[in-house]
């Protein structure tokens, strides 16, 4: 068996991800509360959200009952036994479900039967990346169904919006996705966007943008500018928290790009709700937690 304490560390990773919102998200939610008019429905909603974040941590229970898909992103050293790792992670997910950190959230698409364990074909999801470092880095995202359902993939050009194959066209379709998501994904949300790629890699990369901290700066100045502009404009739309109306419609926008085929130009958008559950750890050679990432 690899890494003696891996099972306990992964269980704690699941618990923390489900019950404790990362600091970068909490900070922006608090700033958003200040931007709403005191006593307004939007302000009251942010107050309930803040109370909920605090309560979940105190009670060590899920921030949101929809604990979503378990998405593991594992950066591992050469030689890590990925088969064994996945086995330990699956056991941790099952245990976390028994303890009520996770809802029974994996349903057979053909029979409608709930496995009751969060295990099954495609659940949980593992993304293994080998890196040239002895460190084992495990990041986990719990992405709920409400926000996953409002993801969008556009194929440019799109005539109805006069969106061409350029950043101006990307801006239009990204704003369109915000308009369409209103009320459905629990706002204010964060957009992860990928420009380019194929249908699958584009969505994949859009989700990976959500692993970035909210206060980071995009290394590509054009994308940094687009992120800033879309965030500002989305907040002018007045959709507000939960679609009740208000100043804050989005908490952040993160955009990445992949090369594309000459024939294709996809813009894929993954929406993450305010209950932005992601956490990560660096583990040592025994599987002990060295430090938390968010």
């Amino acid at each position: 068996m690899l890494l003696r304490n891996l099972d306990a560390s992964l269980l704690e990773l699941v618990r923390r991800t489900s019950a404790e919102l990362p600091e970068d998200i909490k900070r922006v939610i608090n700033q958003s509360l200040q931007r709403e008019k005191k006593g307004s429905v939007a302000w009251n909603t942010f107050s309930i959200i803040e109370k909920n974040i605090q309560l979940a941590k105190e009670r060590s229970l899920p921030i949101c009952q929809d604990t979503g898909s378990c998405l593991f992103y594992v950066d591992c050293p050469v030689g890590l036994d990925q088969i064994a790792f996945a086995e330990v992670a699956r056991a941790a997910v099952k245990e976390a479900t028994l303890k009520g950190y996770l809802r029974q959230n994996s349903v057979d698409s053909l029979t409608g039967k709930n496995s009751g364990t969060n295990l099954g074909p495609g659940a949980p999801v593992f993304h293994f990346h080998q890196h040239a470092s002895p460190e084992l880095r495990v990041r986990l995202m719990l992405k709920g169904g409400g926000c996953e359902n409002v993801g969008q993939q556009y194929s440019l050009p799109m005539e109805s919006l006069k969106a061409n194959r350029d950043l101006a066209g990307c801006r239009k379709v990204i704003l369109d996705s915000v308009l369409k998501a209103q009320g459905k994904g629990c706002g204010p949300g964060v957009l992860g966007v990928c420009i380019g790629g194929d249908r699958a890699t584009s969505y994949e990369h859009s989700k990976e943008q959500l692993l970035r901290k909210l206060d980071d700066t995009n290394s590509n100045p054009d994308l940094a500018q687009l992120e800033e502009r879309v965030l500002k404009e989305a907040n002018q739309m007045g959709i507000g928290p939960m679609g009740y109306g208000g100043e804050v419609t989005l908490l952040g926008v993160k955009i990445g790009a992949l090369n594309r085929l000459p024939a294709s130009y996809f813009v894929s958008i993954s929406y993450m709700c305010w209950a932005f559950r992601r956490q990560g750890v660096n583990l040592d050679g025994n599987g002990e937690v060295q430090n938390w990432l968010y």
Binding site: T45, I48, I49, K51, N52, L55, A56, R59, L61, P62, I63, C64, Q65, G144, G146, C186, M242, Y244, C273, W274, A275
Partner: peptide, 13 residues
């Protein structure tokens, strides 16, 4: 009646 989405702890109390 609209309840605050994601506020699973506040609502469960």
């Amino acid at each position: 009646l609209h309840a605050v989405g994601g506020a699973a702890q506040v609502l469960s109390t």
